[in-house]
């Protein structure tokens, strides 16, 4: 799933402006390398959930987790184990293709269980979700036909099973 020294971290933060700045500022302050960064709302309107993938040795990883957990707006930080985590990324890719080439690209899209979201004379737009390696494989396959542009969201991550990262009530009772 991951390259060597790559890891994913899930962070629950208060849903306020400026929080993303604080997290990304920490990365530049401490010289951490971000590979992907996603943020969005959750079932709890008070908080947002951030998923970061980063690269670094164990010392960097340990520092990153500790430094993030010190931030005032951070409610919870967890390192996501690759074995026990559902990791997904969304890709939209625009491929230059017509005639036979187009047919091959569409076949590949089908094999990769992706969705065609737009077609125009000379180009096709395909949407795909999956683990990053699957998206990489698809991009490698269609590259010879001419990729016009593509865009990836970065990973989001959720633990398998019933266990949840954050429960506001539980957290409150723990700190009380």
């Amino acid at each position: 799933m991951f390259n060597e020294n790559q890891f994913a971290v899930s962070i629950i933060v208060t849903n306020q402006s400026g929080v993303l700045t604080r997290i990304s500022s920490l990365f530049s302050q401490r010289d951490f390398n971000i590979d992907t960064f996603t943020s969005g709302r959750t079932n709890d309107p008070e908080v947002a959930r951030i998923t970061i993938t980063a690269t670094g040795d164990n010392r960097k990883k340990d520092q990153l987790l500790k430094q993030i957990s010190k931030l005032y707006d951070v409610k919870k930080v967890e390192l996501m184990s690759p074995e026990n985590t559902i990791l997904r990324e969304l890709l939209i890719v625009k491929v230059k293709a017509s005639g036979d080439g187009l047919r091959t690209v569409l076949d590949a899209a089908n094999v990769f269980r992706s969705k065609v979201v737009d077609m125009s004379p000379g180009s096709v737009c395909i949407e795909m979700t999956g683990e990053s390696a699957k998206l990489d494989a698809f991009l490698t396959y269609v590259a010879p036909y001419g990729i016009l542009e593509y865009c990836r969201t970065g990973l989001i991550a959720v633990e398998r099973g019933a266990n949840c990262l954050y429960d506001a009530k539980e957290e409150q009772s723990q700190t009380a």
């Binding site: 400026g18 700045t21 500022s25 931030l71 005032y72």
Partner: peptide
């Protein structure tokens, strides 16, 4: 002010 304060404070509030 908040942006300036981030790397040099423990926390800042707007």
């Amino acid at each position: 002010s908040i942006g300036l304060s981030i790397p040099v404070t423990k926390h800042s509030f707007l």
